[in-house]
């Protein structure tokens, strides 16, 4: 490319009138050697652009790291909903299982006497009657004993009365 053409392109370049293709032509031109002194400044600038373009992300494991991370990203909105629903379901399942075990434990530690033992209400009624009768018998026996104590008290009062009469005489 002759220097006149380059000068013309450079003028367009400084005025921001060059197309991408023309800028590419300039880039290619300034990659070469034997650049006239008059274009030295522009040559340095294009050299700077070319050098900058060579800068790369110098990490061989970068792609693998990104792909690994991307694989663990939940899919779309629907998948996110399903994923959240599954999390809630899992939480509920844990609660239900825990409640079942706690209930079993409580049952084991509760005394057998206070646990319902009769399924048939009639049978339960009969057993209750029996139990009440037993209590009633107990009260009956206690009453007899109390009567004996009363007799003793009456006798004691009679004796005291007799003693008083004797003193008066």
């Amino acid at each position: 490319m002759d220097s006149k053409k380059i000068e013309e392109l450079l003028n367009k370049y400084w005025n921001c009138e060059t197309s991408l293709e023309e800028e590419q032509q300039l880039r290619e031109y300034f990659k070469g050697s034997d650049i006239p002194q008059e274009f030295k400044g522009a040559a340095n600038l294009f050299q700077y652009f070319n050098t900058h373009k060579k800068k790369t992300l110098n990490d061989v494991s970068f792609d693998d790291e990104v792909l690994e991370k991307v694989r663990h990203v939940p899919k779309g909105r629907i998948s996110t909903l399903v994923y959240n629903a599954m999390r809630i379901a899992a939480g509920l399942a844990v609660l239900v299982v825990a409640a079942y075990f706690v209930r079993n434990e409580v049952r084991k530690s509760t005394p057998q006497e206070i646990v319902d033992t009769y399924d048939d209400p009639k049978l339960a009624f009969e057993e209750t009657k029996k139990a009440l009768k037993m209590i009633s018998r107990g009260f009956g026996t206690a009453e007899e004993k109390a009567r004996k104590i009363n007799l003793f008290n009456e006798a004691k009062e009679e004796i005291q009365k007799g003693e008083k009469e004797n003193n008066n005489l």
Binding site: H52, K53, K55, T56, L57, F62, D63, L67, V70, R71
Partner: peptide, 18 residues
């Protein structure tokens, strides 16, 4: 899909990096 992502999107990494 992941293959398209790897072959089309990942190669722009250097431009993004710069």
């Amino acid at each position: 899909n992941l293959e398209a992502f790897e072959s089309q999107v990942l190669p722009v990494k250097n431009k993004l990096f710069r």
